[in-house]
């Protein structure tokens, strides 16, 4: 089980962010939560502490989640990044896994989010 300290949730759906954050707050009340709706907002965030997990959507306005994750891997090398998406095609899963990301399918459920947070660094 990995430590859950700082978690960044990136999704253009406010509802998805809301649901992920509700699960995080319930199970990890001490974790620091950050959120963003797209790549631009993500890269503008000022995060000074270490992120343990990043949960990122694929289809978003502007840069897609795999490209954004490539940048985030450099910015937060210790973070465990999972692509959480409705686009569950094998080709997207392969792109994510080739990039060293975990892949999880939407919808957001408690079980799925807890499973994402239990992953260890690849």
């Amino acid at each position: 089980m990995s430590e859950v300290e700082g978690v960044l949730v990136i999704d253009d759906s406010r509802v998805s962010r809301l649901m992920v954050n509700a699960i995080l707050k319930q199970h990890y009340p001490d974790a620091h939560l950050y959120e963003a709706g797209n790549a631009e907002e993500t890269l503008a965030l000022e995060i000074k502490e270490e992120l343990s997990h990043i949960i990122c959507d694929f289809n978003m306005p502007g840069m897609d989640g795999v490209k954004l994750s490539t940048k985030l891997q450099k910015l937060y090398p210790n973070a465990i990044i999972t692509l959480l998406t409705a686009n569950i095609q094998a080709s997207i899963r392969n792109k994510a896994e080739d990039q060293g990301l975990y892949f999880a399918k939407k919808p957001v459920t408690e079980e799925r989010i807890l499973s994402i947070l239990s992953k260890t660094k690849k």
């Binding site: 253009d12 759906s13 406010r14 509802v15 998805s16 289809n59 978003m60 306005p61 998406t85 409705a86 686009n87 569950i88 095609q89 094998a90 080709s91 997207i92 939407k106 919808p107």
Partner: peptide
Amino acid sequence: EALLEVGNIIINAGLSSLADIFEDEITSDL
């Protein structure tokens, strides 16, 4: 926003299955 997410998940599930069966890729807009 909730209905958008429902639509996104349902529509993409259908398209993803089709793309996988035909071993191709289908990209979708927002």
